[in-house]
């Protein structure tokens, strides 16, 4: 309880700093305060475009995140199981990790439909994060338990459920924490550049060209809130669904 109160007080402190900065600057085209941002957010919410835009971005980014997670996890399992596959796929994920996201966004816009940009970019940033996390988890799996499974001739299904899955749980939650935030940020960046209609990125861009700083900040608040809520829900689902360590 004390801890929660402390966190709330720190949040209020930063909101106060934000308000002070906006008052000091005194120019609504540069920065607006928290109250103006909240009223812009309420205005957007009543406009009819807000919820469909948030919904579309949410679906695209989550689909991209799930596809990237599947790609990263399957590749990690194959790399763990077959060394040659790991040697082949490793440079691919290293390259994806190193190439700037904006280069991928441009390439995706050249190669595919702009409506696919957010999903494909979210997938691109998620896959290497999940791949390296899961691979590290698999490689560090308790060798003593694996020997026990070998001696008792446990079938692959039981090995997966009783040994690998509990061991991988912290690695999976860490993947979600790392990759999901990145998927949101890069997905919205892709929308800002690609301009698919009725998306959060499109709303942000319109705020910028109309010099409506309050709308830009309102969309930003919406992104942060959506990202935090969906990440919490996802983590809760992962923690509940998987057996083993916290």
């Amino acid at each position: 309880m004390r801890n929660k109160l402390r966190k709330l007080l720190i949040l209020f402190l930063w909101i106060a700093v934000w308000q002070a900065v906006s008052v000091m600057v005194g120019n609504v085209f540069v920065i607006v305060g928290p109250w103006e941002t909240v009223s812009a957010l309420l205005r957007l919410m009543g406009s009819g475009n807000f919820f469909p835009s948030v919904g579309k971005s949410l679906v695209c980014i989550i689909c991209g995140f799930l596809a990237g997670s599947a790609l990263g996890a399957i590749s990690a399992v194959l790399a763990y199981r077959f060394r040659v596959f790991g040697e082949i796929i490793d440079p691919f994920f290293k390259t994806i990790k190193t190439v700037p996201v904006v280069s991928f966004i441009i390439l995706v816009l050249i190669w595919f439909n702009k409506d696919l940009t957010a999903s494909l970019i979210s997938m691109t940033v998620t896959a290497p994060a999940v791949y390296y996390n899961i691979k590290a988890g698999l490689e560090s799996t308790d060798k003593q338990l694996l020997e026990m499974a070998e001696v008792f001739r446990m079938d692959p299904g039981r090995r997966f459920t009783y040994i690998y899955l509990p061991w991988l749980k912290p690695f999976i939650t860490s993947s979600v924490q790392t990759a999901f935030g990145m998927a949101w940020k890069s997905g919205v960046a892709a929308e800002v550049i690609g301009q698919p209609l009725m998306t959060i990125g499109n709303g942000l861009y319109r705020g910028k060209i109309n010099l409506a700083t309050d709308e830009v900040l309102a969309w930003t608040v919406a992104i942060v809130v959506m990202s935090v809520i969906t990440e919490h829900m996802l983590l809760l689902a992962v923690r509940k669904a998987l057996p083993g360590r916290a």
């Binding site: 001696v151 039981r158 009783y162 057996p243 360590r245």
Partner: peptide, 23 residues
């Protein structure tokens, strides 16, 4: 073979019954 190892080597999150039936 069946074995009792020097270490217990049990699935920590599972209960005793599961640890016996799983193998």
């Amino acid at each position: 073979f069946s074995a009792v190892f020097q270490e217990d080597r049990l699935c920590a999150h599972a209960d005793a019954v599961e640890n016996v039936t799983v193998v």
